[in-house]
């Protein structure tokens, strides 16, 4: 998992490995919400990264492309939470 900018500083870390158990992996593979399926939203809540739900304006990327916060994750995926962008 990766965090950036203000989100990284608020959490006190920018990168960490999140462990999976076989039940989580199986639920994600079979898309079984509520059965331990791991999604960006569930990890956000599990790791208590801020408000209970993802804040407005925060975006998610999985293996670099933008992704839905409810996309089932697989072991080995790189998940990033991205604060509002301010480039250019």
């Amino acid at each position: 998992m990766r965090l950036f900018a203000g989100l990284r500083e608020a959490a006190g870390w920018g990168e960490r490995l999140v462990g999976w158990d076989e039940a989580d992996a199986e639920a994600s593979r079979n898309h079984r919400p509520g059965a331990g399926e791991v999604t960006p939203r569930s990890l956000w809540r599990q790791l208590q990264l801020g408000a209970v739900d993802l804040p407005a304006g925060l975006r998610v990327a999985v293996n670099h492309p933008f992704a839905s916060s409810d996309q089932p994750l697989q072991p080995g995926d790189e998940l990033a939470f991205l604060p509002p962008i301010s480039g250019g």
């Binding site: 900018a5 962008i85 480039g87 250019g88």
Partner: peptide, 25 residues
């Protein structure tokens, strides 16, 4: 405009030794 809103960059302004993350453009 797409770069400003769709490319992952984050700006922090430094003034008088204090940094502040910019939200938005």
């Amino acid at each position: 405009e797409a770069l400003k809103h769709e490319a992952p960059f984050w700006k922090r302004e430094w003034s008088q030794g204090v940094g502040r993350w910019i939200m938005g453009n």
